[in-house]
Write a protein that binds this DNA or RNA. Structure first.
Lengths: 345, 345
DNA sequence: CTGTTAGCGCTTTCAC
DNA sequence: GTGAAAGCGCTAACAG
């Protein structure tokens, strides 16, 4: 059974003070007799006193809490971003409420409601791949609760966003494949609903255009990020009369899965087909061959987004600026012939 | 700027009702005119009305929220467990507050305070590797707030716990190494502070004893799970006059790191040294050679822990039972000679 | 420096 | 079926 929790009144009675004084002592208000404060603090400690945030929030009409909504927890990307968010939030004295939507639009809507009900002072959100309607997020705007998007951003809303330069990353990844002599470069793209899919696709296309490589429709496959399907698409690509000699994947999990399929079909990487991913996942350096990929400053994304949000909360600045972080192409063995490897050591 | 949020009073005024009636209509109280309820619900919808959980919790003295404290987010284990927790909690109508301690005892203490302040109805906790004092958690008990440990459990407190059979898993992992003919089996163990380290160590020791393999002190290295150190320990082991021919690691990240070191030193896996991990991490099937490991029912751990907690919260049952889930030995190439591989296909 | 008072938004008796 | 009033625990003027 839940027992009675000790309140300021309990402490006040015990010390024959008023609850206001106790409250002041506890919150570190300046005009309190050091003696008084001392005894209040001690007694509070002894009685397991714990400020009831609900009462505080109710009284202050602010919760000192920010909410985070991410689409999934299946790979390391979002957990890492959250680490960055927590770091900044903690420093500023904010709690973080983490919600995870499991890539479901409905869950995202529900999560938004929960955060709203918890009176968060602001929200950081990365959309699910299903999200096409944004009413549940516009509610925050209407209520004047700052919102910042990161990674999977919403194009329809004029709020700050933190992204990496997906276009540029994809461009350079593709350019790298071209520079090592690949001519038939396939692209396993993400769903069109996600802006990042479209930006990465554009980077890929423009790189081909720049180097006058023909764009072959059948080499571009857009899919819903359900990893199981990668095997199907890769088998298809590899069984084409002219299979690709290069492959750029929307993200690392996709690329890693693709590598497994390619190897199982007896193709050599990178000799027959060179592969590039996107994200620099934990596993990309572990597989054989290690994966060339576009690294994102993951933790920095979280920190930047959190800073932007806190800035809005505390200073009310709300220019809908887009903070674009840089990516870095990390070249590993999936695009590197052996000789170069020796040279670089 | 945060704007005025719509309250029951706003709705009441608009509809010329009392706030009590509005409240009753909103909460689904039986004695309300269906007509009235209908109009209240509609207006609430239209006005973006959102129940203020703080006010509700304050009035009800319960939050319908459970807290979760995990040591880290660096690998997939805890995020996956949380998925299981959320699944069960959601179904029962509870919110989940996720806190992450970054393996720091101090952060864990702070996290416990936050949860306390948020009036959680119960807590699920997995300890940091630093945690040796449990006062911050005993506070929950004193306040009558149910607590359930999982994975990294506390031996000092009489509360329900959810673990996997670490001893048995370690025993079978070691036995497997013995059965493929290994005689000098090293063990990279976790810190003694963690019960799971001790249990896995015991499983390892007992397996050796059962098969009359001498226990060699110099082959057993206990470390603090700081992955960077694995290289040092492995180099040491491999440079012994008689290097080990088998290796059992406390967890998969350790084993994966060990494999990289072993390969870089020119030893063959599994011919020179066979390796077994623990957890069946996402990456264990991706590395070369793929890692034999002890799989844990990760999501099930979360679900079981959540169910145990909800049971305590709602029915007050609080037998300090220990729920032990089974592990499964997954044999992969890090302990398998090539021939067998062909046979099994 | 400290006490008094009102009120945050909601639920919940107790009347009618 | 609905309203009035009290109270959850805390903060924040306003007096003194």
């Amino acid at each position: 059974m839940k027992k009675h929790q000790t309140t300021v009144i309990d402490i006040a009675k015990e010390l024959k003070l008023s609850k206001s004084t106790v409250s002041r002592a506890l919150t570190g208000h300046p005009h309190v007799n050091p003696q008084t404060r001392q005894s209040v603090l001690e007694l509070a400690q002894k009685m397991d006193y714990q400020r009831n945030v609900f009462a505080v929030s109710l009284a202050n009409n602010r919760s000192n809490t920010i909410g985070v909504i991410v689409p999934e927890f299946h790979f390391m990307f979002f957990p890492q971003v959250i680490l960055g968010i927590q770091e900044v939030a903690k420093e500023a004295g904010y709690h973080v409420l983490i919600m995870q939507s499991g890539e479901s639009y409905e869950a995202e809507v529900a999560n938004a409601k929960v955060l709203l009900a918890h009176q968060v002072d602001g929200v950081l959100v990365s959309l699910t791949k299903e999200t096409l309607n944004f009413d549940h997020l516009k509610v925050f705007q209407r209520k004047g609760i700052p919102i910042v998007f990161f990674n999977r951003v919403c194009d329809d809303m004029e709020v700050p966003k933190v992204v990496v330069d997906d276009y540029d990353g994809a461009f350079r990844a593709t350019e790298h494949l071209i520079k090592i002599g690949r001519k038939r470069i396939a692209h396993l793209a993400g769903p069109h609903s996600l802006l990042i899919s479209r930006k990465r696709l554009n980077g890929y296309l423009d790189a081909l255009r720049k180097y006058d490589i023909p764009i072959v429709e059948e080499l571009i496959i857009s899919y819903d990020l359900t990893l199981e399907k990668v095997a199907i698409y890769m088998s298809h690509l590899l069984s084409l009369p002219q299979p690709p000699d290069g492959l750029f994947c929307i993200n690392d999990p996709t690329a890693i899965k693709a590598i497994q399929v390619i190897k199982s079909k007896g193709f050599a990487i990178p000799q027959d087909i060179a592969v590039v991913g996107f994200s620099n996942d934990y596993a990309s350096d572990l597989i054989e061959p290690s994966l060339t990929t576009v690294a994102q400053p993951v933790r920095e994304i979280g920190k930047t987004a959190a800073r932007l949000l806190l800035d809005q909360i505390e200073n009310g600045s709300d220019k809908p600026l887009i903070r674009q972080l840089n990516t870095e192409l990390i070249i590993r063995r999936s695009t590197q012939v052996e000789e170069k490897l020796w040279l670089s050591k």
